[in-house]
Simulated assay, not measured.
Amino acid sequence: MGEKRSRRVPMALLAAGIVAVLGLTACTSSGDEDAATNGKPDSTQSPSGQAAPKPPAKITVEPASGAADVSPSAPIRVTVADGTIQQLTLTNQTGKQVAGNLSPDGTTWTLGEPLGYSKTYTWAGTAKGTDGKTAPISGSFTTVTPTRTVDASLNVGDGKTYGVAMPIAITFDRDVTDKAGVQKMLTVNTSVPVEGSWAWLSDRQVHWRPKDYWPPNTQVSLVAKLYGTSLGDGRYGAEDRTANFTIGRSQVVRANTQTHRLQVFVNNQMTADFPASFGLESDPGRVTNSGTHVVMSKHDTYSMSNPKYHYENVVVPWAVRISNNGEFIHGYAPSIPDQGKRNVSHGCANLSPANAKIYFDSAMTGDPVEIAGSTNQLGPEDGDYYDWAVPWDQWLAKSA
C-alpha cells in the first residue's frame, strides 16, 4: 500500500474563503426579507418571535368607590381604556336604575339625569378588554347630605323683553357664604359681545349688569347651575335656574328736577318732552333722588299711602315704578299747575294724566330713567335697582 498523504489548504485561500462567507452573509438581498415580512417589522412579535399579549381593560370609576359626601352635580362616569363597556347599571339604594348614556365607541358611560342628595349609588357591570377577557365593574358612593337646601329666584324670565338697563338679579332665600364657589356656577351668554360682571349686593343677592347699557336687540341666556353647588355652611342649592330673554329697543328717560322737564329718547332721538313736578326740595324726605333708576313695573292705577305725610290710599293713574323706595312716574292732575314750574311731590315725578299715559304706553321694564338736579343720590338704601348708581370700578370690586 502506498503512503496516504494529507491534503493541506494554503492559509491564504482559507482566509479568502472566510471573507467570502462573511461577505455573502452581509450582502444578503433584502428581497428575500421583504418576501417574508412584507417590508414591515412585526409589531406583535416579541424579541423571541412570540406575539405580545394584548392589554386587559383598564376601568376608571368616578367618583372612586367608597367616596362619601359627593355632590350630585360632580362628574359621574365610567371610562374604559383598552376595552369597551359590555353592560353597566347605576342604581340607588332602593334598586331604581339611573339613566345614563354610553358613548358610540363603548368606552364611556355618563350620567343622564340628576342624582339625589343623601343617597347611595352602586355600579354593576362588565367590560371586555382587548385581551378578550371580561372584567367586572363595581363600586358604590354616597351623595352629600345638606344641612339645608337653598332656593333662588330670578328677576328675568323666558321669552321676555327688557329695556337696555335691565340687571340680572338672583335672590337666595338664605345667606350665601361661599360666594366665589356659587359665582363660578353662574353664566351669562349674549348674542353680541357685552362686557359685564356679577356683583354681590348682599349675602342673599347677586346681580349681573353690563358696564354700559345693553346693546339693543341682544339675546341673553342665563344659566345658574345651583343644584349640587355648595353655598357654604353645609347648604346646597335646591334647583338650577335658567332664563333666555331679549333686550329690546333703546328708550332712555332724562329728567331734571331744576328744569322741571322729563324727556324721552328712543334710539337717541327725542320723542317726548313733558313738563313735570318732582319731589319738594325743602324736605329731604320728599326729594326725588338723582341717579340712574330702572323701570321695575307698570300699573294702570296705583294706590299710594304714606302715613308720615298724612295721606292714604291716594289712587293715581298710569304709574311706572322706577325704584323700590316709592319713586314712580305717574299721572297726577292736582299738580298740573306746578308741572314744569315747581317741585311739589312726595318724591315721584308727576305728569298730567294724558302725558303719563303716553309715557306709560312706551315704557318697558328695564328702561333707564336718568334723573339729575336734586340734592339726594340714589343708593343702596333705595333697594332694587340701584345698580347703575355704583361706579364700574366699585361694581367690579363687589365680584367674588
Score class of each variant (00 low, 15 high):
S153V: 13
F328M: 12
N343F: 14
A169V: 07
V194I: 08
T242C: 01
V156G: 05
P47T: 01
S65W: 13
T60V: 07
K308Y: 06
T257I: 14
V223C: 00
H299L: 03
Q45T: 03
T60A: 15
Q251F: 07
V80E: 08
A152G: 02
V98A: 04
D382C: 03
M296T: 03
G39K: 13
T122N: 07
S303F: 02
S65Y: 06
V188A: 12
H207W: 14
K119P: 01
T91A: 15
T25E: 13
L396I: 12
R235I: 01
M364I: 09
G132M: 10
D240G: 12
Q258M: 05
D105T: 09
F141I: 14
S6G: 07
T259K: 14
N306C: 07
S282N: 12
R5N: 05
T288N: 07
G163S: 13
A276L: 07
N267R: 07
A135I: 01
Q251P: 05
R204Y: 05
D393F: 03
G112R: 11
S140L: 03
Q258E: 14
V315S: 11
D384M: 10
C27D: 08
V369Y: 01
S48N: 12
E3M: 09
N256Y: 09
N217V: 00
Q87S: 13
A57S: 00
D338R: 11
G83K: 08
A36C: 07
I59V: 15
Y311T: 05
T94P: 00
H330Y: 13
G234I: 15
Q97L: 13
T187N: 09
G132V: 12
D384K: 08
V61N: 11
F278L: 04
A152V: 12
T130H: 03
K160R: 14
L201G: 14
Y359R: 00
P146T: 14
L111F: 02
F141C: 08
P72A: 04
N268H: 15
R174G: 13
S197V: 03
N355K: 06
Y162E: 08
G66P: 06
P41Y: 13
G291V: 10
P104K: 15
R235P: 06
V182D: 09
N38Y: 05
P104A: 15
T126G: 06
A389I: 02
T142A: 10
G100H: 12
P210C: 06
A135D: 10
E195F: 03
A224D: 06
V223G: 02
V316P: 10
V253F: 09
S323E: 11
R8H: 12
S297P: 00
A35V: 03
S335W: 02
K211T: 02
Y386S: 00
A67F: 12
